[in-house]
Design a protein around this nucleic acid. Structure first.
Lengths: 206, 206
DNA sequence: GTTGCGATGTATCGGTCCGATACATCGCGG
DNA sequence: CCGCGATGTATCGGACCGATACATCGCAAC
């Protein structure tokens, strides 16, 4: 999941580790805590080893690049490669029901602006299904097993059930918007001409 | 966190692995998916090695115990020890702010019936503080950095903010109840020394 | 009966992610 | 020039998950 988030962010612009962490925290702040360094750096290495990222010298505002590599200063700037973009697209395409747990769905949703409408719908509906299942299971417990559980546990379940119902309603609104071609809320997607990524239409399982 | 949940459940009655998993799923279903076997069995071993659990023979409804150990049949029944109960109490006592993330708080809450009122208040207030912080940080992002983020990301943050506000209200209600000595909802219950109703009716097979 | 099969149950393995910790460098005030 | 907090990269052990393997039980079909 983290791999997906990093690849997604680096498509906006190259960044070094710390920056990546901050941007990620801003973008995903509503669904998870800031990513740990113990996760970040190993993941960056793994992605680089896989050819999805490359190290680059740091671009100074003046213009030219400073010498490549770590040597000059601690910071290492990562840039996404063509394979990386492809990998990102693949990860979306492969997204199946198991991806739609709280964290997985949230991360995908956060990058909806880089996803085509059909995929957005697929993910929203998959998530809705998952939340509905959870909701039913909670109703079940609250109905059938209520007297086996203590008051606090019941209260927790009720709160969870409430959150499920609310999320389903939210999702239905989003789905309706999506079908009618509207964006969430008011904002118009000026968002500087989203470059017509060559790799977009890639809705296929091999 | 899982260690805490297992120790908490085994105070109700001894259980074997599968059963533990099912009870845990029923009790914590509102906050997390069913626990994985890859987590459960190693954790049980760890707790046993630490002296918090012991293996026992399986108690058949007839009365006597079947021979101890794994030999007769696959199932291994675990029973909590005195050290285990002590450990459970320690884990509650040590609960600090870092424990109050979504999962940690939920698990603690689920075992409030085994906790004294002062601790319940401490945990509820700690959680409220944590959620308030998250809420402020989301408001911050939505206010200051709004134009840097795309419509979908903003929508996600709004939904997260909404959930925070709702949870804070929920927590305040619980805190008020706690202070006035009421239980959540209606149910009455006396804690300490096990509910008079004998543990859980162990689901049956002669 | 015995054979076959789905449900029950225990167990391991590789991988992801986290929390704590260490350490090097930069920017800046005294 | 020194010291010190911000910034930044990095490692390590541990918790937890998902997939998988395998053994046994209960039961029904033959």
């Amino acid at each position: 999941m983290l791999e997906f988030a990093i690849l997604g962010l680096l498509q906006e612009s190259p960044m070094h580790g710390y920056e990546l962490r901050k941007e990620l925290a801003a973008k995903l702040g509503s669904i998870r805590a800031a990513i740990s360094f113990g996760t970040l750096y190993p993941t960056l290495r793994r992605l680089q080893a896989a050819g999805y990222l490359t190290e680059t010298g740091e671009a100074v505002p003046g213009g030219a690049e400073v010498p490549p590599l770590t040597t000059r200063r601690g910071r290492v700037v990562y840039k996404i490669t063509a394979e990386g973009k492809e990998r990102f697209a693949d990860l979306i395409a492969q997204a199946g029901p198991e991806t739609y747990d709280d964290a997985g769905f949230g991360v995908h949703f956060a990058f909806f602006a880089r996803t085509d409408q059909a995929t957005r719908l697929r993910i929203l509906e998959g998530r809705r299904r998952k939340v509905e299942e959870r909701r039913e299971s909670l109703r079940d417990v609250l109905g059938r097993a209520a007297e086996r559980l203590d008051a606090y546990t019941l209260e927790l379940q009720r709160h969870g059930l409430d959150a499920c119902e609310r999320e389903v309603r939210w999702l239905e609104e989003l789905i309706a918007n999506e079908r009618s071609g509207r964006l969430p809320a008011d904002r118009q997607e000026t968002e500087e001409d989203r470059p017509p990524e060559p790799g977009y239409p890639r809705e296929e399982r091999p």
